[in-house]
């Protein structure tokens, strides 16, 4: 999933302090799972903003909350079609995709981000999410034992580990697993250490962000 983290309330207040009518817009997908932008968080943020305005003596402020199934699909975003333009600002607590898609759709309404979108990751345990994928557009996991050096090695080495791998940990942080140690352990476990001996070719990064904004176009499903 896309993992996001809450922005400090102070930062959000800074965006909307001069607004009088604000919609906090949650999303039911990834950001709900990572407890940054779902219905609960929308409720808390809206409540906090209401109390902020009241405490500032601003009596006429209105803060509403709404949570959509997704903010990255036209059909769900259409649900706020009739109300979007009533607000001075929408604070979207979806990922960066949701914030932008909402802004594109409601061209004349100010949309602010309420979370920091962080990475594509997994829930390792409650309250701990870690990165697994950088969406480079050309998956090599078949050759690295199912562990990605692009997202999990601090130097994204294709022929690692570097000399800084120590006791299975990365040189930049003793709590961080060395991706190449994980790869080697895993190749050993599946009896494919022969894959380690192969020199990895230079990567074609044109499918990564380096190639400019990307798209996936599927004629087999397009109508």
């Amino acid at each position: 999933m896309i993992v996001a983290d809450k922005k400090p309330v102070e930062e959000i207040i800074e965006y909307v302090k001069d607004c009088r009518k604000v919609l906090v817009l949650g999303c039911n997908e990834c950001v709900t799972v990572c407890e940054a932008g779902g219905k609960k968080e929308a409720g808390m943020l809206a409540s906090a903003l209401r109390m902020y305005y009241a405490n500032q003596g601003i009596e006429d402020a209105q803060v509403d909350e709404r949570t959509l199934e997704r903010q990255c699909d036209h059909e769900y975003l259409e649900e706020i079609r009739d109300i979007a333009d009533q607000y001075d600002a929408i604070v979207s607590i979806a990922c960066g995709v949701g914030v932008q898609f909402t802004a594109e759709k409601y061209h004349n309404t100010t949309v602010y981000p309420g979370v920091n979108t962080c990475f594509l990751g997994a829930t390792e345990q409650r309250g701990l999410w870690t990165e697994r994928c950088q969406a480079c557009g050309q998956c090599i996991l078949a050759y690295t034992g199912g562990i990605c050096p692009v997202s999990r090695c601090a130097k994204r080495l294709f022929n690692g580990p570097c000399g800084g791998s120590s006791d299975g940990k990365c040189e930049i942080n003793k709590e961080l697993d060395c991706a190449w140690q994980l790869i080697i352990d895993r190749l050993k476990a599946i009896d494919r250490l022969d894959l380690y001996e192969k020199l990895f070719d230079i990567k074609d990064w044109s499918t990564d962000r380096a190639g400019g904004p990307r798209k996936v176009q599927r004629e087999d499903v397009q109508i």
């Binding site: 309330v9 102070e10 207040i13 906090a48 109390m51 902020y52 405490n55």
Partner: peptide, 8 residues
């Protein structure tokens, strides 16, 4: 924390 950050 939230209350502290909005001045309550």
């Amino acid at each position: 924390r939230l209350l502290n950050s909005i001045g309550l």
